[in-house]
Design a binder for these strands. Structure first.
Length: 523
RNA sequence: GCCCUUGUAGUUCAACGGAUAGAACGAGGCUCUCCUAAGGCUUAAAUAGAGGUUCAAUUCCUCUCAAGGGCACCA
């Protein structure tokens, strides 16, 4: 159990015993400054109104009951916060825990182990992966890592839309006829390889080649491994779409109007506001129907407890109907859709609209070639997904040398160097001054205590961008320590510090692994 | 027109409704006889505007202004 959980549990016990209260909402957070302790809780402020009492007094009353071996001091402060001061013993205990758990430090037990699927990227197989696919790609990959650390069984999936209109258009583009829309070098290449006169057939072949020759290698270079590539084509060819329609009819969820077949999505008034077409009046099936069949497959056939889809923000109008459909087929609350905001490409200070159709885009490959995978991943991951981000390739190239990822990796390299130099040297237990940890040492350990707590938090709110910020904070604490405390002194190794530094190396590695970024031994 | 996102230092981004709004880059000033100066220390610099809710608002609500996206029997 993390320190945070321990505090929460203890406070709930006190509330129950002392005040006969349950289910009170309160938060346990990190104190903003070290003078105010390490953890702080606002429960007294939450109770102030209820009791019509000064929150500080309530805080003092509660603090009295909270004495715990993990803390040297628990006390109420100013407006009514209860502050917890970690004891040195707890810090040292954590250090031992890290060295013992090694790469497992950060793993937590889920209250209930879930089978979770994360579907992301899923870019149409009509061209190479571009920068636009970077956000969802890296965020999805890291979210999957986090959810596994949090104790769930996670599968990564890429939906290949190798069917429908865009495949036909791809075919026309390869044939270079009047209906062509896509252009670019890859289309020219495909035109040389594929012959035929049926646009859809040509498109299918083109999509297959694009997937194998451009998309899959790019995904691999991005450092992502999908557990499953799902082909939309198979839904159609295996008759799963027709079966889905039968199923919906059996459940009495469809009706005919104006020659088309509709799904009663508006019945789910909370999620969608009107009914949606499944079969057009010309007899064509809509993509929506295929998508329902796809989700039926996820939930009904493959039995996922939770499905998370990362979509581009331009699909947000589609979210309500998809959620309604999933509810209608009986999986309420099990589909989560996260929108990745648009990424704008800037060139010479001007926004350039990326367009696959106009052949105007920067591919993932180009970017990784220019600045490297570590910089690319870190850059994308640092941005919260609900905000639009600007990307200037020229600036990115210039600035890649200054990417904060190096700050983090440099900490790791410095540690490796210390460990290397300490080999074979005489060990001395601690500094002559005694057992007391220096402030920078304490700060460093406290930062490491946060790692499992962060995993827990991100597994709940999916805010993956907090991980790179944590990595920077940990590196920062290390660099501070490095300036203040020497591990090797007069050609002798301070043993406790060597252990501390080894623990930091371990946590840095765990963090970087979760981010999919390398931990170099030399820089 | 309706709906959804988003407005934080010069720039790119942080900040579960909490205590003095943090970083990085950029600008200025220090700092290597000692484990990697890709480091450390330091100065200047920000919540778009107006109301409201709250003990407490960058965060929630309303309006204004600004940016982006969506409103199909397209996928």
């Amino acid at each position: 159990m993390t320190i945070k959980d321990t505090i929460k549990q203890k406070i709930n016990q006190v509330l129950k015993k002392k005040y006969k209260l349950e289910n009170i909402e309160f938060q346990v957070a990190y104190s903003p400054q070290s003078e105010l302790g390490d953890y702080s809780c606002n429960v007294a402020m939450a109770l102030a109104k209820k009791f019509k009492k000064n929150p500080l007094e309530i805080g003092q009353d509660i603090a009295l009951e909270l004495a715990d071996k993990n803390f040297t001091k628990v006390e109420a402060a100013k407006p009514g916060f209860i502050n917890f001061y970690l004891s040195e013993k707890t810090l040292k205990k954590t250090l031992g825990e890290i060295l013992e758990k090694k790469d497992k430090y950060g793993e937590i037990k889920a209250e209930k182990k879930l089978k979770i699927q994360i579907e992301f990227i899923s870019a149409n197989p009509t061209g190479p992966l571009t920068l636009a696919n970077g956000r969802g790609g890296f965020a999805g990959d890291v979210l999957a890592n986090v959810l596994s650390l949090a104790g769930h069984k996670v599968a990564r999936e890429y939906l290949v839309n190798n069917w429908g209109n865009q495949v036909k258009i791809l075919g026309h583009s390869i044939l270079k006829d009047k209906k062509a829309e896509y252009s670019g070098e890859y289309i020219n290449q495909l035109a040389k390889q594929i012959k035929g006169d049926d646009a859809f057939g040509v498109g299918l072949k083109g999509a297959e080649i694009i997937l194998e020759k451009y998309i899959k290698p790019a995904v691999q270079r991005m450092g992502i491994k999908f557990d499953h590539w799902f082909y939309e084509k198979e839904l159609h060819e295996k008759g799963k779409i027709d079966k889905m329609l039968e199923e919906l009819e059996k459940k009495n969820l469809v009706y005919k109007k104006d020659g088309a077949t509709w799904l009663k999505t508006a019945d789910m008034r909370k999620t969608d506001d009107k009914d949606r077409v499944l079969i057009k009046s010309n007899g064509d099936k809509t993509y929506f129907l295929a998508d329902i069949a796809y989700h039926w497959d996820k939930f009904h056939q493959r039995k996922f407890d939770r499905v998370i889809n990362l979509w581009g923000a331009d699909h947000h109008g589609y979210v309500p109907r998809m959620k309604s459909a999933v509810e209608l087929i009986g999986y309420q609350g099990q589909l989560e859709i996260f929108l990745m905001q648009i990424m704008r490409l800037i060139e010479n200070g001007q926004e350039v609209r990326m367009s696959k159709r106009k052949g105007r885009y920067v591919t993932m490959d180009e970017l990784i070639n220019e600045v490297g995978l570590d910089v690319t991943r870190f850059f994308f991951l640092m941005h919260a997904s609900n905000k639009a981000m600007d990307f200037d390739l020229t600036l990115a190239k210039e600035k890649s040398q200054k990417n904060p990822v190096y700050y983090v990796q440099y900490a790791h390299a410095r540690i490796c160097s210390i460990i290397e130099k300490s080999r074979g040297k005489l060990g001395i237990p601690t500094e002559a001054s005694g057992q007391e940890l220096k402030p920078t040492e304490k700060e460093l350990i406290k930062e490491m205590i946060k790692w499992p707590e962060l995993i827990q938090e991100v597994a709940e709110n999916y805010e993956v961008h907090k991980l790179p910020f944590y990595a920077i904070a940990l590196a920062d604490k290390f660099h501070n320590f490095y300036e203040q405390c020497r591990v090797i002194k007069n050609n002798q190794v301070v043993k406790d510090r060597l252990n501390l530094v080894k623990a930091v190396k371990q946590v840095l590695e765990n963090v970087l692994r979760t981010l999919g970024v390398s931990a170099p031994e030399k820089m």
